[in-house]
Design a protein around this nucleic acid. Structure first.
Lengths: 192, 192
DNA sequence: ATAGTTTCTTAACTTAAGTCAACGTACTCA
DNA sequence: TGAGTACGTTGACTTAAGTTAAGAAACTAT
């Protein structure tokens, strides 16, 4: 729904009728079916993404294996690759559920910022907050053992555990599927 | 030197005499001796930091041990904790070399953005670029073995390997000092 | 210069992750 | 619905990281 993004924005700034209108008219909001690849590795991208509904996964290949690096869900900005540069993307972006995604590009963004300068300020502030959170997540990952990472995952993203196949969770947590399977077993053992 | 930050900015935007003056006058640029703690874990912070010269390390304690989570060197923005919120910091920030650091606060920042709106735009753009780089670094960390992480570290931050004690590098790479020592030994063995 | 501390290395041992392979289950799609 | 693929679990084995402890080397400060 278009309303979702307005609801999100209006938590931070007053959303005028004009702004709402501009967002809807701009074609920013797009619908994708499960399995759609938004971005291919190796290709430069001119777009940025914001997940409104559904789940988008970023992944790449290493040693012939697919490695899931991030899951982006409701109200998350996708932070792989800065568009505008001509650098080929390191990652694929794939909708692993039917998804509603805000898709931006430099022209649209510049135009919106010109018309609604408060949007750029908001983006800066929210961007800083995302960065701080991500920095903390990286630090925790570094300090944690594989089992601690899985426990942390269950605590911080309990929804994902249901929505996503286990082997993708494994590589997201930096381990092999077999290891995650054994960790789960160990955890069940201890509980009984 | 004040010139350093002007040099940095003028790579992206024209720096007028007024802007240069405003930066110098603001007291943004500060000097710290090696060992100075800029921020203490547990205390809420009102400041943001940008390393102009020297090296700042972020760390925290886990299981009674000090864990280094990041090194910030020349021309790096320190992204732990968003100031302005009253949340206690998760990390310490310590100068591990004599350092020149830009220290900001919300009031100063707002004032500067009001006088020089191009600064806020620049911050948004640079912030997005930092975020993209960091996302990539996190992904690579997840996919890499401890030895690969160390090789990657030597490649991407060769200066740090000289500037920083090894046990701090170890925890920065998510391993114990003993492991890093053995990895180095293994690498030397193979080379001979 | 030297005593005291911190840092790095080494060794022996424990634990768990990676690897390879096999098997059962679940999903999918023609 | 039935064949084929993808997914999760398990087991045996290999490899390397964590742990503990001890000693050597480097650094710090008086």
């Amino acid at each position: 729904m278009e309303n979702e993004i307005v609801k999100y924005l209006s938590r931070y700034i007053p959303v005028t009728k004009e702004l709402e209108e501009a967002i809807v008219q701009s074609g920013f909001i797009k619908f994708f079916k499960r399995g759609t690849v938004l971005l291919e590795a190796g290709k430069p991208s001119n777009e940025c993404y914001f997940v409104i509904k559904g789940c988008v996964r970023s992944y790449c290949f290493k040693d012939g294996e697919e490695k899931t690096t991030e899951f982006y869900t409701e109200e998350q900005a996708i932070t792989v690759s800065v568009y505008g540069k001509n650098k080929p993307s390191d990652f694929y972006l794939e909708c692993i559920e039917d998804a509603i995604v805000g898709v931006g590009n430099p022209e649209l963004e510049d135009e919106m910022y010109r018309k609604f300068p408060e949007l750029e300020s908001l983006n800066r502030v929210l961007g800083e907050a995302i960065m701080a959170k991500y920095t903390e997540a990286f630090a925790e990952f570094k300090m944690a053992s594989p089992m601690e990472r899985y426990l942390n995952f269950l605590k911080t993203r309990p929804d994902l555990n249901q929505r996503v196949p286990q082997h993708q969770i494994a590589s997201y947590l930096g381990m092999k599927p077999e290891s995650l399977s054994r960790i789960r077993k160990r955890m069940i053992m201890k509980k009984v």
